[in-house]
């Protein structure tokens, strides 16, 4: 401890503490011991992160091993170019992060701040691409939960949404003097009905919209299965995925979004009703990963600001190193997600 750290922070500690390293906690003997302890702690945290994602990878593996044809059919909806761009962005930002740690070790302050900023830019680029990917999924009605076309509950959700939109339209139309310009005579009828009962607007609209917005049948769930199959034992009472007890044969509401994916082009043997599970796994895994990217960007912003203020140097760069480890883990997880979700042969 007879050498002063290069940073100016020592000046503030000139009182009574002698030559004590301001970054060395009292319960550590040496900076090295402190650094090693911090690093082990970070690795233990990363291990818990791996275990958390491990659960999702497990769900993935179970589904893929049981229904490989579903994964093969559904992954065509993912954009390989976008996934590839994101892979390259993350690998590049991982590289600049590792370089930033090196710059901190060598006291190259300016270079460190530049590299950390580049790392942040890479993360933000990842988020932008991810935004467009998710938007595309939304437009194609391959969204999460009941927003997914292949979800058996989709129809109801879509109808609800349509009813909401109609209600908004009607409110807007009702305002200027009740002047209803009827593209659709039925819509006008629904409007009149609801004008009487303003309090229970929502419920009425839903019903009205439900009736009027039914279009011609678009999808037919090919399901020759009997409605209920009796199996032995109590454990078969309710299946994990539930049974589609009625054949879905029906009309879907018309909407103005992008065209639906070509369901008829699905290879034979693919159960449409299982396809949405792929998208749930996709959204859960990439969503949790994207959350990590956002947190990582926040952490890098924090050390960039501290670094710009001169907090880090060869004697003390633990935060840079640990945030770097976190960022590399985010990269590691994406390295597995990309081929497993986007690249299915």
């Amino acid at each position: 401890m007879n050498q002063q750290p290069p940073s100016h922070r020592d000046d503030a500690h000139g009182d009574g503490h002698g030559h004590h390293d301001p970054n060395l906690a009292h319960h550590f003997d040496t900076p090295r011991q402190q650094f090693d302890a911090a690093k082990v702690g970070m690795w233990v945290f990363l291990a818990t992160e791996i275990l958390m994602f491990g659960g999702l990878f497990c769900a993935y593996a179970v589904w893929r091993s049981n229904h490989p044809e579903v994964f093969l059919a559904a992954h065509h909806e993912l954009s390989i170019p976008k996934g590839l761009i994101n892979t390259i962005l993350l690998i590049t930002s991982s590289f600049t992060m590792a370089w930033a740690v090196r710059a901190a070790q060598l006291n190259q302050q300016r270079l460190m701040v530049i590299l950390l900023s580049l790392t942040m830019a890479g993360g933000c680029g990842f988020l932008v691409v991810k935004y467009f990917e998710y938007e595309e999924k939304y437009d194609h009605r391959l969204w999460v939960g009941v927003g997914n076309l292949f979800n058996p509950a989709y129809e109801d959700a879509e109808a609800d949404e349509q009813a909401e939109e109609d209600a908004q339209q009607q409110e807007q139309q009702a305002e200027p003097d009740g002047d209803v310009n009827g593209e659709n005579a039925e819509a006008a009828d629904a409007d009149d009905e609801n004008a009487n009962d303003q309090d229970a607007e929502g419920a009425e609209n839903e019903e009205a919209a439900d009736e009027q917005q039914r279009g011609p049948p678009v999808i037919r769930f090919d399901d020759d299965a009997p409605d209920v199959v009796e199996l032995d034992g109590p454990m078969w009472g309710t299946g994990p995925q539930g049974v589609r007890e009625e054949v879905l044969e029906g009309e879907r509401p018309r909407t103005e979004r992008a065209p639906k994916p070509d369901i008829d082009a699905l290879p034979a043997g693919v159960k449409e009703k299982r396809l949405h599970q792929f998208f749930q796994i996709y959204f859960l895994m990439t969503g949790l990963h994207t959350l990590h990217v956002i947190i990582g960007i926040g952490l890098i912003l924090w050390i960039t600001l501290r670094g710009a203020a001169g907090a880090f140097g060869p004697r003390y760069y633990t935060p840079v190193d640990l945030v770097g480890l976190y960022w590399h883990l985010v990269d590691l997880i994406w390295i597995f997600l990309f081929p497993l979700l986007y690249l299915i042969h």
Binding site: V40, W43, A47, T48, G54, C58, A61
Partner: peptide
């Protein structure tokens, strides 16, 4: 540090393997 990482991966493999 490597041991911590490898242990985590081993448990993931165990988890995956038995579930499959």
């Amino acid at each position: 540090n490597s041991l911590v990482l490898i242990a985590a991966l081993l448990f993931v493999v165990l988890f995956l393997g038995i579930t499959i």
